[in-house]
Each structure stands twice: as C-alpha cells, then as structure tokens.
C-alpha cells in the first residue's frame, strides 16, 4: 500500500505540472475539457504497477506453497548450530503468512570444548524443534531478468517479515505429568522438571537458556519462476522484546536461511 501511494503521488504530481504548462499558452484554442485531458503516455505511466502488474508469476492467486528451509543461526556464543525444516506459505490479501517447523542441531566448537574445562558456562539452547508463525509484507516487486541469460525472467518480491518463534525441547517433556506438561507449554520460561530433563542433552559448556519463545523480524526476497517454483533467501533477527518475561540471556540472534519450494 505504501509503495503504491508513493507511486501515485509521484505520477500525479508530474501530470499536474503538465496541465499547468498547457494552460499558460496564450494562442491556444480555448477547450473547456482541456483541464481534464491527459496524454496517453501519462496515463500509461500511471497504470504501471496499479491497473495492471507486469508479472511472470502471480503468487497472490495461489492457495498455498510448501517449501523446505535450511538456515544457519548466529547466536553470538561459542556453540555451532544449523537448522532445517519445512514451511507452509499462504497468500492472504496483500500479505503472506507462513507456518514452519524446523529442527536445530547444536554441537560443540573448539571454543566451547575448552570452555567445558572451566567453571564457566555460556547460555545456549540444546537441540530442539522451532515452530514459526510469520507474516510477510511485500514492499517491492516486479519482473526482473536473471543472469546468465538462458534463465527466464522471474517475478521478484521483496518482503518484510515479522513473527513469533516457539521452541520445543522434546526431551524436556520426558516423564512429565499431564498437568506439568500443560503448565510447561504456557510458561514463558522452561520449568524446573524440563531443565532437569535437559541436563542429559545439554553440551558440557552449555547453560541452558530458559526462554521458550521470542519475536523475530527480518527481510528477504522471493524469486518466483513461471512454473511456480520459488527461491527465498532471507535474514531474520531476534528482537529481545519478551526478554523480561522469558529471562533469556541471548538477547540478540541472527539467522540466514534459504527457502526452496513450489506454489499450488
């Protein structure tokens, strides 16, 4: 919506300027409709991106998309981690909503192995599942050519992302009663029984971060082929908006990921 407004303002401003110039010519025949006449090339300019969108692939008309995702979290600590999973995407009006689940592998780095020999520990998160609920807002899109030239033109959409990430430690729920599990699911921090269970899977130098969920924002672009295949590189960042309640020590976290999928 905002890009279109900007476009209209820019084009509308140009048309008004032309009208004013025409009115100042003294010899011109007086035409009562003159103020309302607009040259064809101006009208064509106005229609670009509004009346008709030059598209290679109209993702808004698709019902759903499924994709595989892989990423590299940067948690700013000494542990290594990678994530991979699946994503469902659902265009709704002018936005796109995503529901995803990923598994995150965590392993030691040489630094963390050395850290384990000391009486110091560093907050991190053991291997886990991550559930994502993300909304994407297209801010720019168009048909772009690709390189090398033998590849066809693609539809590119630049999206801003905002979403909610919920962490699930399956080991943490081991031997919990139904009541304890229910309490744990809604708690913003890991409960004591969960922490006790996670002792078995945490790395030696790791202090298990207690946060259960957080807020993510990011930016990325979607490249759609005419056949429906799409590729979406993106960068996501954790915002510590919920840190006061989740008691996390990992305020900042970035994640670069690549999404590859198909639209139906």
């Amino acid at each position: 919506m905002i890009p279109e407004l900007l476009l209209f303002v820019a084009l509308g401003g140009a048309a008004w300027a032309q009208d004013a110039e025409a009115a100042e010519e003294p010899d011109a025949e007086v035409d009562p409709l003159a103020p309302y006449r607009v040259p064809f090339d101006v009208l064509a300019e106005r229609a670009i991106g509004a009346a008709a969108q030059p598209v290679e692939f109209n993702w808004r008309r698709k019902t759903a998309m499924v994709a595989a995702t892989g990423g590299h979290p940067f948690e700013l600590n000494n542990f290594n981690s990678l994530r991979a999973g699946g994503l469902g995407r659902f265009p709704v009006n002018r936005a796109i909503f995503e529901v995803g689940v990923s598994y995150v592998w965590v392993w030691d780095s040489p630094s963390s192995e050395l850290l384990a020999l000391t009486p110091y520990r560093q907050p991190s998160r053991p291997p886990r599942l991550e559930l994502d609920l993300i909304a994407g807002l297209p801010v720019a899109e168009g048909v772009v050519t690709s390189w090398p030239r033998r590849f066809p033109a693609v539809q590119m959409t630049v999206n801003l992302y905002g979403g909610f990430r919920y962490l699930v430690y399956p080991t943490g729920f081991r031997d919990l009663t139904l009541r304890e599990a229910a309490r744990a699911v809604v708690s913003p921090t890991l409960t004591d029984p969960e922490r006790a269970n996670l002792e078995d899977i945490r790395l030696d130098a790791m202090q298990v971060d207690p946060a259960r969920y957080g807020v993510m924002v990011g930016v990325g672009n979607d490249l759609y082929l005419q056949q429906g295949l799409f590729l979406s590189p993106r960068a996501m960042f954790a915002l510590p908006l919920l840190a006061p309640v989740t008691e996390t020590e990992m305020y900042f976290q970035a994640e670069f990921s690549l999404v590859l999928g198909v639209a139906f």
Partner: peptide, 20 residues
C-alpha cells in the same frame, strides 16, 4: 525505541560462573 533496543541487545552471550 526499536533502534535503542537493537543497539542495547547487540552483545555477545556472556559467560557465567557456575558458583560451585
């Protein structure tokens, strides 16, 4: 506010003594 928050949180994860 978001900028301040982002700047303030841009730190590496610290180490903690286990207080054994």
């Amino acid at each position: 506010l978001l900028s301040l928050l982002a700047l303030g949180s841009c730190r590496k994860v610290p180490l903690f003594d286990v207080n054994a």
